[in-house]
């Protein structure tokens, strides 16, 4: 039984741009799935259809045999809360402290008035501190989030996602705005979360060297269509040109 099953998924934006065309694939629990493809190929849209930040135009997203394609209201919020997500630009609340940002991962399980009053439970605070320890920045607890470096901010974002105790972690180009050394560090945290905490990871990436190092499986999108589904080693020069176009040159990141 697949953890996540995406079936004939298509999405057209209100402006008429068709970002996804009939995409189907399954994700088993425990996989580290990497999605590759050019900018604009539909990778981000695909991730947002999975945690339903976007409602797809047609097709189905099934998670744990439950169709979540068109749910709304409380079930939708529960669904989102069960999936962690990190972003290229970290998307932290810059003026708030690191620990506050991590606690916001618990918004889905906290009543509105309690969260607005800042009344998170002691247990939630301990979990937040623990998650900061996992991502290696326990000493930054009370710093303002926007005072941290890019790599540190992304680790706060990971800690926030862990706060949701997610069965699935989505990462939308998590290292695209980081330097190479920091990129590897962030990828290693994702890898550990995948291996040690058995969280399934779906990650959009640009660098094939990172893909080969961390992915257990790769799918590729081109102009919204699924054009490759296989092992990282199977991406030959031919496939590379098919995915990225004939003029593309591989760039290494070490």
């Amino acid at each position: 039984m697949a953890l996540l099953s995406v079936r004939n998924l298509s999405h057209t934006y209100p402006n008429g741009y068709q970002a996804l065309k009939n995409v189907s694939f399954d994700v088993q629990a425990g996989e580290f799935l990497v999605i590759i493809g050019l900018s604009g190929s539909g990778k981000s849209t695909l991730l947002r259809c999975v945690n339903r930040l976007i409602e797809p135009s047609s097709g189905a997203v099934v998670i744990n045999e439950q169709d979540v394609t068109h749910i709304v209201g409380e079930p939708l919020r529960k669904h989102r809360a069960s999936i962690g997500m990190i972003f290229q630009h970290f998307n932290l609340i810059g003026r708030h402290t690191v620990i506050q940002n991590v606690l916001y991962g618990a918004l889905g399980e906290t009543p509105t008035w309690k969260s607005v009053a800042g009344a998170f439970t002691q247990q939630q605070r301990e979990r937040a501190q623990h998650n900061l320890t996992i991502t290696g920045i326990p000493e930054k607890t009370n710093n303002r989030a926007d005072s941290l470096s890019g790599g540190q901010q992304q680790r706060v974002a990971i800690a926030r996602a862990l706060m949701q105790q997610p069965q699935l972690l989505l990462a939308d180009e998590p290292v695209a705005s980081l330097d190479p050394a920091t990129s590897h560090s962030v990828m290693r945290y994702l890898d550990r979360i995948n291996k040690e905490m058995h969280t399934t990871v779906i990650c959009n990436l640009h660098f094939l060297s990172l893909v080969r190092e961390y992915a257990t499986r790769v799918i590729a999108l081109r102009a919204g269509e699924l054009v490759f589904d296989g092992m990282p080693d199977a991406i030959t020069e031919e496939w590379f040109k098919a995915i990225y176009g004939d003029d593309a040159v591989q760039v290494e990141i070490r």
Partner: peptide, 14 residues
């Protein structure tokens, strides 16, 4: 960005 991130945690509109 932050709107997406907070929505993704399962937060409600308020």
């Amino acid at each position: 960005g932050p709107i997406e991130a907070i929505s993704a945690t399962g937060a409600n509109r308020i």
